[in-house]
């Protein structure tokens, strides 16, 4: 059973002019959002992106950008009260 979350919300962007087609983003993506076609990375599954930021962090030429963070409601609620960025700090089991 394939899980699907909300559509058209993800902030992942790609600048094809900068891309050198090294394929590192494809290695690190946990949801197979990207693929290499004609020597360039392509966003083919944007709605599956969870904005973890792995591709952008590991892109050697800065071709990918994403507003990365944790998709966790309690982290977001906590950040409203404490200020600052939502972070995986629940202390419970595997929080994310």
């Amino acid at each position: 059973m394939v899980h699907q979350y909300l559509e058209d919300v993800v902030t992942l962007e790609m600048d094809a002019k900068k891309c050198v087609g090294c394929g590192r983003c494809i290695d690190v993506c946990p949801h197979r959002v990207l693929t290499v076609m004609d020597g360039k990375a392509n966003i083919v599954n944007k709605n599956r992106c969870i904005e973890c930021g792995a591709c952008a962090l590991n892109c050697p030429v800065g071709a990918l950008s994403v507003d990365a963070g944790v998709g966790c409601a309690s982290a977001i609620v906590k950040s409203w009260f404490t200020g600052g960025e939502p972070s995986c700090d629940c202390g419970g089991g595997d929080c994310c």
Partner: peptide, 19 residues
């Protein structure tokens, strides 16, 4: 809704919209 944090397929933008 809190289980979004345990799930492996939710984006922060999506969770923000949901909330």
């Amino acid at each position: 809704m809190n289980f979004t944090g345990s799930s492996t397929y939710t984006s922060p933008s999506g969770v923000m919209k949901e909330m």
